[in-house]
Design a protein around this nucleic acid. Structure first.
Length: 316
RNA sequence: GGGGGGUUUCCCGAGUGGUCAAAGGGGUCAGACUGUAAAUCUGAUGGCAAUGCCUUCGAAGGUUCGAAUCCUUCACUCCCCA
């Protein structure tokens, strides 16, 4: 799954609330691109307010893909994303247009840039069994168990990193080969000069102010009502991947009576700041990234001009 | 006016003579991350010339070899009776 030359496409990313969507549309216009959303939650239909999806007008203006492609009751995964992105990107290229990825899910970005291994899909029954076994054994059982079949991965993973330990064991059981032998794609990245991966880079205080404001706007735009609607269909409960999204998780808890409204708003703001922090950690670690400094007053069109121009001059 | 409780490191909150710079949680900072990733996991978190030293548990005194822990007074705060 690594062969697709995603490196030749355009990528616009950055932490949440950094203005990616607005800049993306301006940039797409300039370069004649269609946009592929790079967002693990915007794939869900009906999850609009909390994901700050581009508006209908914006989507009419520039074609957007991989938004609203699954039901909130369905699980979604990295591999599904990569597969869908490959397909859509090929279609866009077929139309003779540029491909511009816009969004802030760094794992998906890395998967696009470097490829992912052809592994087995999640087996939730097996995972559940392993988790149960781990509970009934002593601390560190999963880790020891992995060490016997895949010492390399065991050495890399912390004994408490249950999810990755389980996935590593799962891959071994399904394929008979250790996951550490499968996973080579992420080892080496290309340099920023060879790629067009732009990261909107804000001063922290300004970004945090944008986050606070945006979360308040989500609530006044009806986030709580949106969550009520999502929960209304008892036949099709929200999937594990859909319900863990920031904004949704906290509002669900609010509706369950766990915390009041004011506290909920604060929680969403705080968790969003923490998300932004983790996104930034990813960008710093990716050699492909090119940081584009932005600050208030923010001008999306001007930023788009600047980063497309910077590419022309920087790439010789 | 009478009786009882509280004041702990950024926050909440354990700790009732030494093993306490002080549990745990939150926050913050940093890191990891390949089929749950807006998830999950890890480390650090009083100061410093730092295998030790200095400052800290409302304030000031006191007891003791030794106090966040005991005593006295003061300040603020909460509850009950009047």
């Amino acid at each position: 799954m690594a062969a697709t030359p995603f490196q030749n496409f355009w990528f616009l990313t950055g932490p949440t609330a950094s203005g990616k969507s607005a800049v993306g549309i301006e940039l797409a216009r300039r370069i004649g691109a269609e946009i592929i959303s790079l967002d693990s939650i915007a794939v869900y239909r009906g999850m609009d307010i909390g994901t700050a999806k581009p508006s209908v007008e914006q989507r009419r203006d520039v074609p957007h893909h991989l938004i609203d492609i699954v039901e909130p009751s369905e699980e979604f995964s990295l591999a599904q994303y990569i597969t869908a992105a490959e397909r859509v990107a090929a279609e866009i290229v077929g139309r003779g247009r540029e491909v511009l990825f816009v969004g802030g899910t760094p794992l998906y970005l890395k998967g696009l840039l470097r490829g992912i291994f052809e592994g087995p899909p999640a087996d939730w029954t097996l995972r559940r069994r392993l988790a149960d076994d781990a509970h009934s054994h002593a601390e560190g059982w999963l880790h020891e168990r992995l060490a016997t079949v895949d010492p390399v991965s065991a050495a890399r993973l912390h004994p408490n990193d249950t999810r990755r330990l389980i996935r590593a064991i799962e891959v071994f059981e399904k394929t008979g080969r250790p996951i550490s032998e499968w996973q080579r794609q992420f080892d080496v990245g290309r340099s920023a000069e060879e790629c067009r991966v732009f990261v909107l880079d804000w001063p922290k205080a300004e970004l945090y102010a944008r986050i606070e404001r945006r979360v308040e706007e989500m609530f006044s735009a009806g986030l709580i009502e949106e969550v009520r609607r999502l929960l209304a269909d008892a036949e099709r409960p929200l999937s594990r991947t859909a319900r863990q999204a920031v904004g949704y998780r906290e509002v669900i808890e609010h509706l369950e009576g766990l915390h009041g409204l004011a506290e909920t708003v604060e929680l969403v703001q705080r968790h969003t700041r923490q998300l932004a922090k983790r996104q930034s950690t990813w960008f710093r670690s990716l050699s492909e990234c090119r940081f584009v400094a932005v600050c208030d007053p923010f001008d999306a069109a001007e930023t788009a001009v600047r980063l497309s121009g910077s590419f022309q001059t920087q790439s010789k």
